[in-house]
């Protein structure tokens, strides 16, 4: 017999090597499609920033003392972070189910929490890489402000976790590619565009402002905008509360689905 019977050893109750392997595997999978994973969102952001921020924005007066390109950059950045997180999360779980290699992790000594954290870690990595690229593009167009880097990272990471968890739930539920894209088409894209990417809440007619306050995307974009240019339209602390609330609800729901094997086990 060889000396590998210690396989599955854990420290502090966690299979760290197993967790790291999930991340390594996903990193390898993402690097098979670098154009789709990174270049596409960067080019899309470049177009948004160039047209709306630079060309159109050049003819718009200052908003709350900031040039339009600086105002619009956090919104564009958040749109792409949300997309990157959701796509990463849905694709990794759905492809594992579709090609059945989810069974590799099901037969291994990995806990549900390790499987979820492994997926979310790679989701965060992809979102952060996407965000840093867009930040550089914004910098090239003169949007150089960074009000609070820690707050910036908080919003990128926490929004990635929210859409990472949402992506896992959708990927467990979906039985075809059509269903996989439904949430993005009918929920994420519309709500993110009306969440204040291009405008302030005060620009909306008064009767429509409650829609903005009821839209969670508004808090994500507003929070990121505050971290970058110091401009805030939401009540103090409400955005953070909404974010933690969503992470808690979606986290418990995802853990529950894994523990009953929904969409995973026969």
């Amino acid at each position: 017999m060889s000396d590998v019977t210690v396989a599955g050893s854990r420290r502090m109750g966690i299979n760290w090597i197993g967790l790291g392997t999930i991340i390594r595997r996903e990193w390898s999978r993402v690097w098979r499609v670098p154009i789709q994973a990174f270049l596409a969102p960067w080019i899309s952001a470049l177009m948004f920033i160039f047209i709306f921020g630079y060309v159109v924005g050049g003819n718009i007066r200052l908003i709350a003392g900031h040039r339009y390109v600086e105002f619009v950059l956090p919104g564009v950045l958040m749109l792409n972070v949300v997309n990157a997180a959701f796509l990463q999360s849905t694709s990794q779980i759905y492809f594992q189910r579709f090609l059945r290699y989810i069974e590799e992790t099901l037969v291994a000594p990995l806990s549900y929490v390790e499987m979820i954290i492994g997926s979310l870690t790679m989701t965060i990595v992809r979102s952060v890489v996407t965000a840093l690229g867009i930040l550089l593009i914004g910098y090239a167009f003169g949007a150089t402000q960074m009000y609070n880097i820690f707050e910036f990272l908080f919003w990128i990471v926490s929004v990635s976790i929210i859409f990472g968890l949402l992506g896992i739930i959708i990927a467990l539920w979906a039985n075809n590619f059509e269903q996989l894209t439904m949430l993005n088409v009918f929920f994420i894209a519309p709500l993110s565009f009306v969440g204040g990417v291009f405008n302030t809440v005060s620009m909306l007619p008064p009767f429509m402002r409650w829609i903005a306050y009821a839209n969670p995307f508004f808090y994500f974009i507003n929070g990121l905008r505050h971290s970058m240019i110091g401009f805030n339209e939401a009540p103090e602390g409400l955005g953070v509360a909404v974010t933690f609330g969503l992470i808690a609800v979606l986290g418990v729901a995802t853990w529950r689905l894994f523990s009953i094997g929904y969409g995973l086990r026969e």
């Binding site: 050893s9 390594r24 999978r29 090609l99 290699y101 069974e103 590799e104 992790t105 291994a108 000594p109």
Partner: peptide, 22 residues
């Protein structure tokens, strides 16, 4: 066959070892 069909032979075996904590 329940594997990531785009992964290499080495990766497939190595990843499984990783899941088992080796």
């Amino acid at each position: 066959f329940n594997v990531d069909t785009f992964a290499t032979v080495t990766q497939i075996i190595d990843w499984m070892g990783g899941y088992f904590g080796m």
